[in-house]
């Protein structure tokens, strides 16, 4: 096979796409469509919005490919476009009370854990793939948008703190503070499903 990873490395795909080779752009789309769709769904929490976001993000990327400088990764660039589209959808719906991504006063009082229990050694193994996805999706869905968007970018899509701050237009301390809260809230929610059953909850002592 001549189509090795080298032939299809990202830099050359982008160069070809910029030069007008549409199959190269379609290859980039195939590479990232799943992640962009997941991101849109996780942030908007609405199927119809997620579909629109995904379509808009790739169409915009295609139309503005000349603006892509190549000093960031293509993935980070298209994530930024998709995040913008997702936040616009979220604001438009106004179904959430906490759609504002503005900075908030940080008192630290909300950090106190309620559920303190060790988990099973391999908690995921107790559920089928579908059940596990359901638990994880529902838990993320229940976070307020300001926490959810940060968690999705940092811990699901694996962006850096700086990239997350840039994509959401918030400060680095705000990313860190929201990420901590999101992680702790999810930990509480997952503990209900993953805690060690039986009388052995203090086994760590």
């Amino acid at each position: 096979m001549a189509d090795t990873a080298e032939t299809f490395d990202e830099g050359s795909l982008i160069a070809r796409a910029k030069a007008g080779d549409d199959t190269a752009f379609t290859e980039l789309l195939t590479r990232y469509e799943r992640k962009i769709y997941r991101l849109a769904k996780n942030i908007t929490q609405n199927d119809e919005d997620a579909e629109d976001v995904m379509q808009e993000a790739f169409l915009k990327a295609y139309s503005h490919l000349d603006n892509f400088q190549g000093n960031s990764k293509f993935y980070t660039w298209i994530v930024r476009i998709a995040v913008n589209e997702s936040l616009m959808k979220l604001r438009k719906r106004k179904s959430d009370k906490l759609v504002s991504l503005d900075e908030q006063v940080d008192t630290g009082e909300d950090l106190v854990p309620r559920e303190i229990a060790v988990w099973e050694d391999n908690p995921e193994a107790q559920y089928s793939q579908e059940e596990l996805r359901g638990i994880l999706d529902k838990s993320v869905e229940s976070l307020a948008p300001i926490f959810r968007s940060v968690f999705v970018l940092r811990d699901i899509e694996d962006l850096s703190t700086e990239e997350t701050a840039e994509a959401l237009g918030i400060s680095i301390p705000a990313v860190k503070s929201r990420l901590l809260r999101a992680r702790l809230q999810l930990r509480e929610k997952l503990t209900r499903f993953f805690r060690r059953k039986g009388g052995n909850v203090l086994a760590f002592l």
């Binding site: 995921e124 968690f151 811990d155 699901i156 694996d158 992680r183 999810l186 930990r187 997952l190 993953f194």
Partner: peptide, 12 residues
């Protein structure tokens, strides 16, 4: 358990 929370999401 926070560490495991992050791991379980990163692994999906």
């Amino acid at each position: 358990t926070t560490k495991k929370t992050i791991q379980v999401y990163r692994g999906t």
